[in-house]
């Protein structure tokens, strides 16, 4: 199997983002094509990297480590970006999506990359837990991106600025609708993901998967999920709510959840704190050193 490194796809994504930015000054079909090609090249390298890691650890990427889990979320985000870009070429989604993708990929370097073979027990349940959380987080991430797009478009319209020729933003009504749906999808997925995590911990009481109430990742995840739940209920009971208010709340809630999840993973890896999601092992930046071809 083709062996690639994080640097390969990270560099492609950085170039794709640079091309998107470049279109502000130099609008040309070529820049758009280069941007898409870079994104596709990066996605292919990214896929090979995840497959290679999965082969090495003999675990699905979602179960292998926090490093791989974050990279799967980033992989999904790039896939969504490509889908939207190919369907609606002029939408400026990349300007918001790429920083988030880059943040995920870079963050993945600072969380644990060591495969966790604790997962051999209750493998299917663990897979369900990781998948639900991963899907929930992807929807959270999309909600975050959509909220930023909404706020950007809202600001432009309030300030009566001319629409950029190079990059078009979706209309407010559409973003608002999509945003609502991402939150309505993200919260149940996140809740089920966390609930399945608690369930796993209870069933393996006393075993290696036993949860401690001081586990920062668990506490952070539960708190942010609670916040998202409040937003979810608020969205359900409000017949009509000002779009900007929804976007602001979503941006804060989703942003907080992402920062908490990633930040806590990085923190546990950095200080060697005990956590069932990444306990006391070296961060990926150290652990994968020298693996690049």
């Amino acid at each position: 199997m083709l062996k690639t490194s994080v640097f390969c796809f990270l560099a492609s994504y950085v170039l794709a983002f640079a091309c998107e930015l470049g279109q502000f000054r130099w609008r040309h079909a070529l820049a758009r094509i280069v941007s898409l090609l870079m994104a596709v090249a990066g996605l292919i390298a990214h896929t090979f990297y995840l497959l290679y890691r999965s082969n090495q650890s003999d675990l699905p990427p979602l179960l292998s480590s926090a490093h791989d889990w974050l990279l799967v979320v980033a992989w999904l985000a790039v896939l969504v970006y490509l889908f939207v870009s190919l369907a609606e070429g002029e939408l400026g989604i990349g300007l918001v999506m790429w920083p988030v993708v880059l943040l995920l990929v870079v963050s993945a370097q600072y969380v644990t990359a060591a495969p966790s073979h604790v997962l051999d027990y209750h493998r299917n349940w663990k897979l369900l837990h990781a998948t639900l959380l991963m899907l929930g987080t992807t929807f959270v991430l999309l909600g975050f991106v959509l909220s930023l797009l909404y706020l950007w478009q809202h600001r432009r319209l309030k300030q009566r600025q001319t629409q950029s020729r190079a990059i078009k933003l979706p209309n407010l009504e559409l973003i608002e609708r999509l945003n609502r749906w991402t939150i309505l999808a993200a919260v149940p997925l996140q809740t089920l993901g966390i609930a399945s995590g608690f369930g796993l911990s209870i069933f393996s009481k006393g075993g290696e998967l036993a949860m401690t109430w001081t586990d920062p990742v668990v506490i952070g995840g539960a708190v942010t999920c609670l916040l998202m739940g409040v937003l979810f209920v608020w969205l359900l009971i409000q017949k009509r709510s000002p779009g900007r208010q929804v976007a602001l709340l979503t941006a804060w809630a989703c942003g907080f959840l992402l920062v908490t999840l990633i930040g806590l993973q990085m923190l546990t890896a950095a200080v060697g704190m005990r956590s069932i999601h990444g306990n006391a092992s070296a961060p990926a930046a150290v652990a994968t050193e020298g693996q690049a071809p």
Partner: peptide
């Protein structure tokens, strides 16, 4: 074209 359509979808 530039403003109303940036607010409303339809």
């Amino acid at each position: 074209g530039d403003f109303a359509k940036s607010i409303f979808d339809h």
